[in-house]
Design a protein around this nucleic acid. Sequence first.
DNA 1: GAGCATGTGAGAACTGTTGTCGACTGCGAG
DNA 2: CTCGCAGTCGACAACAGTTCTCACATGCTC
Lengths: 136, 136
Amino acid sequence: MIRNTRQRTAVNAVFDELEGFHSAQEVHARMRAAGDSIGLSTVYRAVQALVDDGELDSIRTDAGEAIYRRCSARHHHHLVCRACGRTEEVEGPAVERWADRVAGEHGFVDVTHTLEIFGTCAACHSAGAPSADQPG
Amino acid sequence: MIRNTRQRTAVNAVFDELEGFHSAQEVHARMRAAGDSIGLSTVYRAVQALVDDGELDSIRTDAGEAIYRRCSARHHHHLVCRACGRTEEVEGPAVERWADRVAGEHGFVDVTHTLEIFGTCAACHSAGAPSADQPG
DNA sequence: GAGCATGTGAGAACTGTTGTCGACTGCGAG
DNA sequence: CTCGCAGTCGACAACAGTTCTCACATGCTC
């Protein structure tokens, strides 16, 4: 049975206030800073439960860290600023169709896909950080 | 200066024999098993150097492990069977354009993207493993 | 309220990866 | 070929993120 504990509720609530992606560690730190007593293990467990429930979306950063976000139910992708971490949701029905079609052509079924776009947002770009050119 | 060492050559050679994605640890284990004396750090360094050179492509598994594959130079994406791990390279110029356009519309510059398609390949599907449907 | 399965949390353990540093060696110069 | 040296190696430690452990606490059912 799944219980409705204070901690679980609290973690859920954190994502109501937060926009963009945040790591479990960050959520933990934030809660502790806010005076909420909670263990790191519990945050991990809560977050994973929420992902299982479909309440959160998770992706992995390039550094291998898992980050989470409350997501709207419909399928979409993310446009992430690699400087400030700002996230925008984007939709691309054409991409969905393309992915399904390509997978189908190769005989694949049960198809899902992940698509994340990384870039430097206008604010960060004009803030003057010239980034190395990214190949490919 | 970049030197042409036995180890570096050996790591490179491993990817000639291997298809699909493989982790640094796996490459290391494989080389040791084959009687090749090489350190794990060296494998990591070699693999990263190869990625920098554009000789290998790297993505991250859901478990956060980095896996590598010899890739053709041009930009493409992967269609991965989640049952047997078989990988196909696919290209989608339209997707590239879409990603660039969407990013541009949001004021992002210096745009890169990652796109992986996961599914069950025909062979694995007919082998009868009915998988749970994956919500978007 | 009683009973108990489930959740909690501090810390240890584990995993993949990167850093350290003395020894080694490929490669160009002579 | 030998020399010199800077890039490289590799065993190991360090690190970060995540998961496991286990005694204790607590939500839920009756």
